[in-house]
Design a binder for these strands. Structure first.
Lengths: 143, 143
DNA sequence: TATTGTTATACTCTATAACTATA
DNA sequence: TATAGTTATAGAGTATAACAATA
């Protein structure tokens, strides 16, 4: 029987390695994790308002202002008017932003394939099952 | 057979939840993750030099200066002279720093116990095994 | 010459509070 | 009155470059 603290330690270590690997890849393309997450969200919520982004990213609206400022300066997103609410601002991916997200997705899938290449499907399924349980458990304890 | 991208996505989600939960606990005690990691390292390397800390934390020496400044101001660590090298500075946990680390350890073990409470030992062992494989794999691809 | 830690400077992420324009 | 986004301000983490003291 493995020590649960050791397993948690492993999860943290993996988290550090994963985010480190991710950040390095992003930095090469002039992106930060926070900005990449904005792009990622815009893929699922095309034309989201900044308010919606702040909710999806669990950060303040003020924070979104700066993140969108940066992405707009890089030409990856564009601000546009809301059709009916003149207070709101819609944020959409530009063509360059879209190809940047596509590149991120490709890198993501490639990483996943590499990481789990030598794990038998049955073990991977069991791993995924425990992972799911732990996520649920953590969500409960956080709420 | 589970989709490896989905599993990786789960790992990322867990990482976000774990660090979020951790950060919230630290914030209550006036700590940040970066500073907590300094304390954590000092537990394993008591009386480390700032240079050694910068290597352990994989950050610049300049960064360590500020982190130690903050912890010193909070009374959690203390700077001292190196016995033989007058350029170097030794950093050690104060008594308050030690009890803070002890509290962190307790919280960590409590979290691990909660998370894996309902996972059978056999499944947990299999989970730990895959986790270990993936960590090794990621270290290889990073190097 | 090389190393340790610091000063100087800069960028990013994050937050709260006050404010403007709009609903 | 309430909401969307911004200006103002602040703190923290991170980095590079130049520098002083020491090895």
């Amino acid at each position: 029987m493995p020590d649960s603290s050791k397993v948690l330690e492993g999860l943290f270590e993996l988290g550090v390695l994963l985010t480190g690997s991710m950040d390095a890849g992003l930095a090469e393309r002039g992106l930060t994790r926070a900005r990449a997450e904005v792009l990622w969200n815009l893929l699922r919520q095309p034309g989201a308002t900044q308010r919606e982004l702040s909710q999806a990213l669990r950060c303040t609206p003020r924070n979104v202002t700066d993140l969108v400022d940066g992405l707009e300066a890089s030409g990856l997103v564009a601000r546009g008017p809301h059709p009916t609410d003149r207070r709101a601002t819609l944020v959409r991916l530009t063509r360059r932003g879209q190809s940047e997200v596509a590149r991120m997705q490709a890198g993501y899938q490639s990483l996943a394939a590499t990481l789990f290449a030598e794990v038998p499907p049955k073990e991977l399924a069991a791993f995924a099952s425990v992972l799911e349980q732990v996520i649920v458990r953590l969500r409960q304890s956080a709420a």
